[in-house]
Design a protein around this nucleic acid. Structure first.
Lengths: 195, 195
DNA sequence: GTCTATAAGTAGATAGAC
DNA sequence: GTCTATCTACTTATAGAC
């Protein structure tokens, strides 16, 4: 099929997502202009509107895409076995998933304020569904007598905050592999909820 | 002393700091205009420049003020006793200090990207000094044989991330007092680093 | 699908009157 | 110390040519 000169629908689309994610992560949504994104993609600013209706929707789709991927990946892993085994699996999954996509993680946690109320509510719903995965494991562990947790909801938020914090310091070129980081954090999580 | 009509140096200054902190926390530094801040203070935008040289310096002074207060308060508490007692004291201090000033905490953790390189370096230096307080406690505990921590630097960052995360969900009108929250988190911290 | 040009509005910061 | 007015530059988004 002949193609109009300068037409690159299948290339510009993904490049737009990638450039926006990187720029938003580095400088923040409000600090990045559509012209900056266009320059990174290699087109003029007006051309971006063939792919997105507006800047707000671009942000939301990036964040929703991240949360969808997180929940989809979790659905594949979500384990069998006792609460202890499931908690270890969750811990290692959370760390490896988050360390593999630092820009998306950064944007999804830092730009919630810049979502419209409707988009914010949609994102919060997805986030809560992920948190419920962990809380289910902690509840099961308490019921089994394997864990001692005063408040499963708070413990859920505390563990997720601790694990997600790994993205603030981990660098692929550093002294530790992802697997080593997983093990160090798993050791702390295991003990924190232990009887 | 007579005062020029419309002159309120001692009032506008603090109000500017407070309004900027609240607006930056709520909407983000880049999304807030000097005109919005001025409207909140109750003056015109131009008047703000009697108190600050530019917007960037306003942000930096807010963040530096927060870190200075944190380090000063920590210097008053910094405890005697064994590592376990010092760790409990640190944990309770960190939670109560952070829950008492959610806007400053939010701005100080979210707006690092919007600092100029020099200002960023200065802030990072203050942050590292605070982290070193906790790492010193963990090192002492390991030396005493009271704690079992694979990597004191990572454990430091993990504990701080967990504790600071409390600011994302705690609400003063909620079901828990600050003291109760402190106790719940202390229970998890204590076990996470235990032998 | 991308370009150029532009509309309509807002940004940070300054000048000079009072 | 605050005001009004303004400068210069940049913002998101759209229109119409190619």
């Amino acid at each position: 099929m002949a193609r109009t000169a300068g037409s690159h629908s299948d290339i510009t689309g993904p490049r737009l997502q990638q450039a926006a994610l990187q720029l938003f992560a580095r400088h923040g949504y409000a600090a990045v202009s559509m012209r900056q994104i266009a320059a990174e993609v290699g087109v003029q600013a007006g051309a971006l509107y063939n792919y997105i209706p507006d800047k707000q929707t671009l942000l939301f789709e990036l964040m929703r895409g991240h949360m969808d991927a997180l929940l989809a990946a979790r659905a594949q892993h979500g384990g069998q076995g006792g609460a202890l085994a499931r908690l270890e699996e969750f811990t290692r999954f959370h760390i490896s998933f988050h360390l593999a996509r630092p820009d998306a993680v950064f944007v999804s946690y830092m730009e919630l304020r810049n979502l419209s109320p409707e988009n914010f509510a949609a994102l919060e719903d997805l986030r809560r569904r992920y948190e419920d995965e962990l809380e289910g494991i902690l509840r099961a562990g308490v019921a089994e007598g394997a864990f001692a947790v005063a408040d499963t909801k708070i413990a859920t938020l505390a563990v997720i905050a601790m694990l997600t914090g790994v993205t603030t310091w981990y660098r692929p070129k550093g002294r530790l592999t992802v697997a080593q980081v997983e093990t160090i954090y798993w050791d702390m999580v295991r003990k924190a909820v232990a009887r």
